[in-house]
Design a protein around this nucleic acid. Sequence first.
RNA 1: GGCCCCAUCGUCUAGAGGCCUAGGACACCACCCUCUCAAGGUGGAGACACGGGUUCGAAUCCCGUUGGGGCUGCCA
Length: 467
Amino acid sequence: MAPERVRFAPSPTGMFHVGSARTALYNWVVARQSGGAFILRIDDTDEERNREDWVDGILSALRWLGLTWDEGPIRQSSRLERYREAAEKLLASNQAYWCDCTRAAVDARKPPGAPPGYDGFCRDRNLGPGPGRALRFRVPDRDVVVEDLVRGSVTFPAGSIEDFIVVKSSGQPLYVLANVVDDVDFAITLVLRAEEHLPTTPKAVLLHEALATTPPRFAHLSFLVNAQRQKLSKRRDRVAVEDYRALGVLPWALLNYLALLGWSPGGDEEFFSREELIERFDLARLQHAPAFFDERKLLAFNQHYLAEASSEDLIEAGHDLFAAIGALDDEDRRSRLRELLPLVAPRVRTLAEAAAMSRFLFREPEVPADEVETLPPEASSWLGAAEDALSTLEPFDAASIEASLRRLASSLGTTLRALQAPIRLATTGARVGPPLFAALELLGRAATLRRLERLIERLGARGPRAE
RNA sequence: GGCCCCAUCGUCUAGAGGCCUAGGACACCACCCUCUCAAGGUGGAGACACGGGUUCGAAUCCCGUUGGGGCUGCCA
């Protein structure tokens, strides 16, 4: 496989979302599998929609995902001189011309209700440069064919492309021009990007012809869509990579899931390591139809990787979440968390859930009133009996606690299932959680007894129930 | 409106003309396991948009229809 020089070229216009992450992933994989280069470029030629924190967001998201780049980030805003040179060249060869038409002026020339588009008004007016004047490319009157690696040969008929602007009246280049210049300057061999760019690709082809440069190959990815089957948008869809990071989704779980949205290896396997993905990925197997980003399935992938991870890896990945519940305050706590995590991990889909389920070990539980209400009338006496049984139990470990409570349940004429409910609620503050007896062992006898006592007092305050 | 792309279970997909009684995964349902909840196991329901061709044979090839999406910016 020939080394591919690919680029990922986001514009800093909003939160980095999962669709961009998928595009970046595919580019990264192609570079890695071909022994080429993954180049990061920031398409920031539009100064009005350019915020430094968005750039930072892109960089930090890519780093978190582990999609490391070999060159860049290249800022287009620092290469304006190169774009100006290209524009000069177009102008000198009469392949571009100055135009002073405003959008409103163009529309005013048309009958009401006519479709939008430039009418070529300034084509032969021989205007010079000046304030308010933009440079337009003189589009030749013939078909333009784009050879797309995933869609095949796509023909754009003569007349379907209007004379488009290459330099704005502000002097800033438009992205089509900037992209053509950069793809050539950085020797990009393959442009792998979202399908929304397909309609502008013939313009790039035309510019390459006009500038006598060799275009890269093109491959257009189908969209990631929302439940309404619309292209994912940072504005209307909550799909920022940062949100999933904060939730406690593992980076590779996200990437593995994303890899399968629009590509499949051809068999039944779904879980891959980075190495396997690099080995098996194939542009020829790209899906043509849009894919729905299904958060539930993403979380199922995350659950899989969570259950597989070591405690240390989980603590590292969810460091902030675990720190927030006090689990990392000292080595003793950290070590108890390490022991609890294997019991928690298969029960949660995110690290945020893992932290919530681990919280009882480090903070006093808040037992919700509505949960207390669901307890049977006997709960208070059961808790008292459990307190007695556990206060002298030796050793205070999971196996002994279980044996002791089994005996208690049977002597109380109830089931272990019923008996564990109020104990779990008292000690962890929740109705569900990790296996109770192991949890109590980690909690320790003193805290366990104290929490049982606390709920007993609260149940007493509840008062006798009406019979 | 014009141009372009797309079409297999609810969702992501397998399927390169006979291997398809259309397979897997997520979600859903039932059962098993079980200290809760998960996990795990077993089973179940669930799709080739429609109409024409081509062919001995079509989910697979062609055309059309319908439906969805994108572009149509001095955004990228």
